[in-house]
Amino acid sequence: MNVGCPKEIKVNENRVGLTPGGARSMVAAGHKVLVQAGAGVGSGFPDAEYAAAGAVVVKTAQEVFDGSELVIKVKEPQAVEISAMHVGQVLFTYLHLAPDPEQTKGLLEKGITGIAYETITDAAGRLPLLTPMSEVAGRMAAHVGAFYLQAGNGGSGVLMGGVPGVPPANVVVLGAGTVGLNAIKVAAGMGARVTALDKSLPTLRYLDDIFGNRIDTLWSSEHHVEEAIAKADLVIGAVLVPGAHAPRIVTRKMLSLMKPRSVVVDVAVDQGGCFETTHATTHADPVYLVDNVLHYAVANMPGAVPRTSTIALANATLPYALKLANQGWKKALAADKGFLAGLNTHDGKLTCAPVAESLGLPFVDPASLV
């Protein structure tokens, strides 16, 4: 199979969908690999490493799209990329379609077979291709929040860990899945006073087991959310419903309860955000104020640490990519129900139920297509 990896074009996105090691594995399996020149430079992988791995380095993204049956990326395709793709092409990447009707429309109209990292599940129902970036984003969220709490960066001037005689920052984490757990680890490690909210009592018991009295836990109700954010210096939004638009946990009205110049880091922005006041930002212009609360809502947070992020993502995605290349998408997905859950679009049909529900579009059972 011809496998392509274009350079990412989203603002300040320096990750790459395929490492030189991944290219080497593809070539060893008998596939032709096309990599756009410069695609890996932001992650520390020069073109020469891809060439040494047996890949063909081409000048333009169009050459990659024209010559590939399977395209491997990191972020959702931008409009110019969708226009460059051809009918029937298989796209393997993060899609996050639920809050993005324009991208969805483009993929459907172009007849792209879109397989989304974020909706693939494993035998235990976990999200193995979302997990690595959730780990990165969760850990980054605490660092980013600490940075923007500094007065010079727009925050209230509170130090995360405090000092003797001065209390630490109050950090609230909404959602204790992979993102939330990693945010809690780092925030607590920095000495902050952390409160974690989740709707799963088993999850809260797990947090209590591993952190003990180092953090507080609350069952996530509207009352508890209001109570917690009113005391918070930093709130990290880490709520996810796989494939669907993130639920709005904090409304505009509730935002008025927060302290002046407190900070919000909404990691759920990829799926629309769990704050009503969230809109996506970029690494070039990451923050904005609403009601005197500083919002950080960069939709590709792990792109700020591309070396770590690319390697972590490739560790998880390469086995799936090899299955697609070796078996073809139909056989690969038919043999694995969790992999089949990654199919979001095919031949103009929307095949992910949460996305269809979020966008009010017809749903086609992916099992009927394989």
Score class of each variant (00 low, 15 high):
A230G: 08
P306G: 09
V163D: 02
A79V: 08
V364I: 07
L333G: 06
G22E: 08
F339D: 01
V56H: 13
G67H: 08
V263Y: 09
Y94M: 04
V136N: 03
T178Q: 08
A238G: 09
V33F: 10
S43V: 05
K7Y: 02
K231H: 10
G243R: 12
I120A: 03
A304C: 05
D347T: 01
V225N: 11
D66A: 15
G189N: 03
V293R: 11
G67T: 07
M140L: 15
P202N: 10
A335M: 01
A146N: 07
A29D: 12
A335W: 00
A335F: 00
A316S: 15
D198C: 04
R252F: 09
A124Y: 07
I112M: 08
V364N: 02
P101T: 08
D291V: 08
R15W: 04
V33L: 14
K323D: 08
A169K: 11
D66N: 05
I82C: 02
A334L: 00
T203V: 15
G175L: 11
P168D: 05
G180Y: 07
I115W: 12
K75Y: 07
V263F: 08
D216V: 03
I215E: 10
N153V: 04
E69G: 12
E276Q: 15
E13N: 00
M26N: 07
C274R: 14
G54C: 08
V235D: 02
I82W: 03
S83D: 14
V74Y: 03
T104W: 12
V144Q: 10
A39G: 03
R205S: 04
N315G: 02
P366T: 10
C274E: 12
W219T: 14
R252K: 15
D216T: 13
A39S: 10
K110W: 07
P46Y: 12
K330P: 00
A314K: 03
E76D: 02
G125Y: 11
P6A: 07
G272W: 11
H245A: 15
L350G: 01
L34G: 01
V370Y: 10
D66G: 06
M160G: 01
